[in-house]
């Protein structure tokens, strides 16, 4: 046993090395050194650095998000403006159409009125002509009737030939 284990490398564990209390002070001492070193490196260098990087990234992302939000608002605004312009243009077109239509209507109305007046005048004129013709026809009828009546009266009873009486009787009969 002793000849085998004179070199430390070939030594085999007797029992549990974890319960070899002679190594405890050594391990605990070096562990404390390790912990102190790690604590100082972490708390002085690593953690503040990572915290600042994370904060920076958070800020950058927040900034980008804000910018995107602004862009989006701008886009919404532009869309609204476009829509408004579209509505305006449409309304204007509507107004123009309306105005043109009214103008045409006016022209049509004027022309219509003119035509109506012309037609009315023409019809009045022709009515007057008809009336005149009818009147002249009427007086011609009266004349003819008078003449006929006078002739009949003169033939039948020449003694009673009274021109005025015959005329009155004929006109009374014609109005009758």
């Amino acid at each position: 046993m002793a000849t085998e284990t004179n070199g430390a490398a070939t030594e085999h564990a007797q029992g549990m090395p974890q319960l070899d209390f002679s190594t405890f002070p050594n391990q605990i001492f070096w562990l404390l050194v390790t912990l102190v070193v790690i604590y100082f490196v972490m708390s002085r260098v690593a953690l503040p650095r990572i915290a600042s990087v994370l904060a920076e990234r958070h800020g950058a992302i927040q900034g980008d998000l804000d910018k995107a939000e602004q862009m989006k608002a701008k886009a919404v605004e532009a869309e609204a403006a476009y829509n408004k312009a579209l509505v305006d243009a449409r309304a204007e077109a509507q107004a123009i159409v309306e105005a043109t239509r009214a103008e045409i209507q006016k022209d049509v109305d004027v022309a219509m009125a003119k035509a109506d007046a012309e037609i009315a005048a023409k019809s009045a004129e022709s009515e007057a002509a008809i009336k005149e013709i009818r009147d002249s026809a009427m007086s011609a009828i009266e004349e003819v009737a008078n003449d006929t009546a006078e002739a009949i009266v003169a033939k039948v009873m020449p003694a009673a030939a009274d021109k005025a009486a015959v005329k009155a009787a004929v006109s009374a009969r014609l109005k009758g």
């Binding site: 490398a9 974890q18 002070p25 050594n26």
Partner: peptide, 24 residues
């Protein structure tokens, strides 16, 4: 259990408080 042995790195067999061992 051999892998858990605490051995001085630079010869000797005594493990004092400040000895450099494989644990160190």
């Amino acid at each position: 259990m051999d892998q858990f042995l605490v051995k001085p790195l630079f010869g000797g067999s005594d493990i004092g408080m400040f000895t450099i061992t494989n644990a160190t």
